[in-house]
Design a protein around this nucleic acid. Structure first.
Lengths: 240, 240
DNA sequence: ACCTGAACACCGTTCAAGT
DNA sequence: ACCTGAACACCGTTCAAGT
């Protein structure tokens, strides 16, 4: 029906001007996948669903993508491109660190299934590298020793990802917090006296408050704890 | 064939003494599910596989279990029963905390798919409560304020779960660390100078070393950072 | 009350066949 | 080279039918 001119391959148009078919590209696949992930959650981002949304069959995607795992890695990195790594000038390193990690937290929580995907995917794309580089730069400015900073970046990202995941899980199904709330709320004073006493505190605090508290906790520790308790881990040398 | 005497219901025996059929109970289902999870990973713990291992059909499980999600919660709590919450006497609170959390870490990593399951399941069973109670007790002994302790328990469990998950993921497929290693190892010095400089530190350290470092980091912070920066989060009152 | 087989609506992935 | 339909080997869950 349509003549396949390579120059207009990206905007094939039918006789009456309507788009006939979006040409398949890796970029289009990843974009559509992220769209489905953000709107309907991780389960909705199946190869079959993505293919359907692109008016094709699942098998067709395998030309541009190795498998589901690779697609997930690509989608994660595309989303990480939205993290605001460039902070404004004349801000303290504390503010900038909170800013970058807060932006990461927001990106994770504002895309329905992204935090869950991030928990199960190792981020190693270009945007993930930019993100890490930004964190290392800020920690260097804070005076954190280089090798400590390397591990600290890991800890910070891991924690923010985990709390974002926990937070988004709550909004999902029919109150999955309820089981915890019920268990903690109705716990027996005689068998679990301490849980009983702090049961309110355990359930209190919105995501943001806890997030910033935990961030300060980790920073305080990172600034104080050196890498090695015993400096030589693989030699027999003790008590230098 | 066999007479159904309720008293010997748990050990039905055939004519020649061989067990004819393991009677279905919730406990048997959860036990078998944990076995499959520990041996073959989370994907292997499907209702169909568990049923097959118990010589029955998937539909039969629904008499004892609401759905897969509930089975996962039951399996997690059964595994949490293995965490050594009772530490020996005359140990410092630091040693006891490291001991309990280390035991949790070991339980997670020694069962192939458990850390992954724990990341996606809210622990609210009796053994989870015992675990939390033990942590709260130790933190109280450390002099941590009650409401801080409540949030600290959350942070500690979240982190240990996350790092156990990350650690077990590595051993699973065909070196899923490899993509990170390659990305970090071959990163350009001009675009990502700081990653390039600490690329060795980023990849160094086994699970245990990093685990204990991060633990000290969090403890140091927990002992120092109070709950509220501005004490009243929901009132308009500022600068008391 | 408990168990079962079959069915329903999904998956990821492969492959022979088309253009 | 790219796309496709059909097939393969799986899922969780439901349901009518058996005992």
């Amino acid at each position: 029906v349509t003549e396949r001119n390579p120059f207009e391959a990206r905007t094939v148009v039918g006789r009456r001007g309507g788009r006939v078919k979006a040409p398949l590209t890796r970029d289009a696949i990843v974009a559509k996948a992220l769209e489905l992930l953000a709107r309907d959650g991780l389960d909705a981002m199946s190869l079959r669903n993505v293919a359907k949304a692109l008016d094709t069959g699942a098998a067709s995607l395998y030309v541009y993508v190795d498998d589901l795992q690779q697609l997930q890695a690509l989608v994660l990195d595309r989303a990480l491109g939205k993290v605001a790594t460039k902070a404004v000038r004349n801000k303290s390193w504390e503010e900038r660190l909170t800013g970058v990690l807060g932006s990461y937290y927001q990106v994770l929580t504002q895309h329905r299934g992204l935090a869950q995907l991030a928990m199960g995917t190792i981020a190693a794309g270009p945007n993930a590298l930019d993100f890490m580089e930004a964190l290392l730069e800020i920690l260097a400015e804070a005076g954190v020793e280089e090798s400590v900073a390397a591990w600290a970046v890991d800890l910070l990202i891991l924690y923010v990802t985990a709390i974002a995941f926990e937070q988004t899980q709550r909004g999902d199904k029919a109150d999955p917090l309820a089981p915890v709330a019920r268990a903690v709320g109705t716990v027996s004073e005689s068998t679990h006296p301490r849980i009983h006493r702090v049961r309110e505190a355990l359930l209190s605090g919105d995501g943001k408050t806890r997030f910033s508290w935990a961030l300060r906790v980790m920073l305080e520790g990172i600034l104080r704890v050196p890498i090695a308790p015993s400096r030589f881990t693989h030699s027999g040398k003790k008590k230098s």
